[in-house]
Design a protein around this nucleic acid. Structure first.
Lengths: 218, 218
DNA sequence: GCAGTTGTTGTACGACCGTATAGCAGCGCG
DNA sequence: CGCGCTGCTATACGGTCGTACAACAACTGC
């Protein structure tokens, strides 16, 4: 009879690849089970790997989560930015696409929202996660600021302060994203986009005085 | 010797009072321990009561949490509204106080934020919690809408749509509140207030076209 | 004072958790 | 082929979790 070659019980994988696979498994587990997906057993099962392997490659679960946070954040930001810049369009048009991409169905997935909540809830007690938050949010606002910086204010309107403007706009985007994620029936994605556009137009028109250069609010 | 009267091991309390005490204990436990405060044992310990008592008064923990969510939500809203309306001031001034109250130190407590995250994370899988979210957010937006409705647009500017405006404003407030709660160094509370004021002024000036009555955005 | 009601406790059980540790086994190298 | 390195598994331990259930005891009414 043909030599029955035993199927190997597991495969050895170089550490860097294994780490990446674990990060991916962690994201899937968080997406599937929310806060309960945070367990070496679940993540290990998701990766088809024994629970002990997580602690073998990461000093703690929070380190793994921090890495997963960074991966997901950057992936989403790149995806949004790609859509914003894909065809050469006017700065105004690019910003519009950024808004649209931010409220695309893939971004309004409740599972994604729950994943995000897990990240947020860890920021207070896990410095590594908090560091990732600070870094990725800075990147997010930088991207927004870069797009805002290309806009030109209406004639006769002084320049606006790009960084605070990016902070404010990201807050508006976040607030809308959260409510849309929790309760999609509150408003439609197109309305969210329209609100962001309105805000941007108001900014360019000089209707938001506290963001005007050298002329903070009364 | 004087008759030693045994100290009673526990006190019987009418169900409605006990329920209220448990709700309070749940809030304290969530505030102290975040997501890990969600356990009959912790809540029971916080209330000075055996774990079994929770399931005796509430069909499940999520029911208790829903009640706690409602209590805290309404309490915060009332507190903010009280400050907004405390002295008779112009509608514009009342709104300003609403903003200021929303970014008062007590509201920017990280423990409060973590509590809120627990509520949010339960909305997807626990209909009772979700129902509370919908109800309290509606109340929140109604309060905001009521204040907005008292504003009068600038001369020659058409009326704005109050309900969508309240939705947008609450999103802006939420987004700012979240970022301030996670990372207080991103911006100062006064700046958040200024941004909300700017937005409101832009609304009154007709600078947010998608919120203008009968004239949605292109 | 006493009995009934019922709010409340205490305990026990099985499930899942993170972690430590000892040893197995895949794979590269000689 | 066989040996060693080490990625990886498997097991065991102590702890916390939710839940069920039987017994207890505080208060009420008589």
């Amino acid at each position: 009879m043909a030599r029955a070659r035993k199927a190997p019980k597991f495969r050895r994988v170089p550490p860097s690849l294994r780490r990446e696979a674990l990060i991916e498994a962690a994201l899937t587990s968080l997406r599937k089970h929310g806060h309960e997906g945070l367990s070496v057993r679940r993540i290990g099962a998701e990766a088809g790997v024994s629970p002990g392997l997580i602690n073998h490659h990461f000093p703690s679960v929070s380190t793994l989560v921090a890495a997963a946070y960074e991966t997901l954040s950057m992936s989403l930001l790149e995806s949004i930015q790609r859509r914003a810049r894909e065809s050469d369009a006017s700065p105004r048009e690019r910003l519009r696409r950024f808004f649209q991409a931010s409220f695309a169905p893939a971004l309004l997935d409740p599972a994604l929202f729950n994943t995000w909540l897990v990240f947020w809830s860890m920021t207070s007690h896990h410095p590594e996660v908090r560091a990732v938050h600070d870094r990725t949010y800075a990147a997010y606002r930088a991207a927004l600021g870069s797009l805002l910086g290309e806009l030109r204010p209406s004639d006769g309107v002084p320049r606006f302060k790009v960084r605070p403007a990016a902070i404010a706009l990201s807050a508006l985007l976040d607030g809308l994203w959260i409510e849309a994620s929790i309760n999609p029936r509150t408003f439609r994605p197109a309305q969210a986009v329209a609100l962001c556009e309105d805000w941007t137009n108001a900014l360019c028109a000089g209707a938001l005085p506290s963001l005007i250069e050298r002329a903070a609010s009364a």
